[in-house]
């Protein structure tokens, strides 16, 4: 009999393309002098932890595949193309070649469908994978040696309200957890987004000039710290409870539903999040964190 699948780690993994740009991987065409080390070193630390975890696939929820008609899943075994960031094409032109766990994607889509969620498999071979998926996955797993599943962000916050988003993303998370359990696979969940998300609308001549990098305003910083403090205390339900106000006050990227989805899938952890780093990128607040359900491997990182 097949053993039960499980979620072995959940990661909050922001996707400013600046971080890939700053790392200068060979896949990216742009060249930088560095920058945003607090986040990049935090990512490197989390990537090392992942190397020591036995898992089969990464399932990532991205706000940069925005769908208005339900939730969509990548549904072909491989995608190879170039991702050019529409906002920062000067920083991110990344040649990707990735594998998809289509079997797991289909199981999650079926479970979501059974839960009453509108769904669609994406099977167009010319589809371009979004830069959120690529940035978060590259920084967590630069070797790209694990298959992924990308889940789109159904824009319920825009169409209805943050409260509706919480309901639907939560239901999606529970459905995905059920599918993972039935799949017998060991899965890493990734919620790809920043916290506060008001951007600067101009860019420094040298984007990686760290003398010019700071949070957009103090209100965003205070809100981000409130969220991080609750995560440290293991109060994930409280994080979700205040999310509508947090999202509204800080124009947070949580509006996409990723963290809600992941927390629901993980049963709203009551243990501390591992904190790997917090830093602003072009004014937005970015936190790298993970939730390790294994008491023996869970760490106090920062």
């Amino acid at each position: 009999m097949m053993s039960k699948g499980e979620i072995v780690l959940g990661c909050l993994a922001p996707h400013p393309p600046h971080l890939v740009y700053a790392d200068n991987p060979p896949q990216n065409e742009a060249y930088s002098e560095g920058g945003w080390e607090t986040l990049r070193w935090g990512y490197a630390r989390l990537a090392r932890k992942l190397k020591n975890i036995d898992y089969d696939a990464i399932v990532i929820f991205t706000p940069h595949w925005q769908t208005y008609i339900g939730t969509h899943f990548l549904g072909l075994p491989e995608f190879k193309s170039k991702s050019v960031d529409p906002i920062f094409p000067n920083l991110f032109r990344f040649n990707y070649d990735l594998k998809v766990d289509v079997d797991l994607a289909e199981k999650m889509r079926e479970a979501a469908d059974e839960a009453g969620i509108i769904t669609k498999m994406m099977t167009n071979p010319d589809f371009r994978v979004d830069y959120g998926t690529i940035t978060s996955c590259h920084l967590l797993n630069p070797d790209w040696d694990k298959p992924i599943v990308t889940i789109s962000s159904n824009r319920n916050t825009h169409y209805y309200s943050p409260e509706v988003m919480i309901e639907q993303a939560g239901a999606l998370g529970r459905a995905c957890a059920k599918a993972i359990e039935e799949s017998g696979k060991r899965v890493v969940l990734v919620s790809s987004h920043s916290l506060s998300h008001r951007h600067f609308v101009t860019e420094a001549p040298l984007p990686e000039d760290m003398s010019l990098e700071h949070i957009y305003n103090h209100s965003q910083y205070v809100w981000d710290m409130k969220i991080i403090d609750l995560m440290r205390q293991g109060k994930s339900r409280e994080v979700i409870d205040i999310m509508p106000e947090f999202t509204e006050q800080t124009i947070a990227e949580t509006e996409g539903g990723g963290l809600i989805w992941m927390m629901a899938a993980m049963g709203h952890p009551d243990y501390s999040a591992e904190i790997y780093g917090y830093q602003s990128v072009i004014g937005t607040g970015n936190l790298i964190a993970s939730w390790d359900p294994n008491d023996e491997t869970r760490e106090y990182v920062l």
């Binding site: 925005q66 208005y68 099977t123």
Partner: peptide, 25 residues
Amino acid sequence: PSIVGHQIQALENPVWTHVDDDFHY
């Protein structure tokens, strides 16, 4: 949509196959 100011396409001959996020099918 743009964020960093107003962007204007200036590649003389852009060539690609575009697929819509919702209507990919």
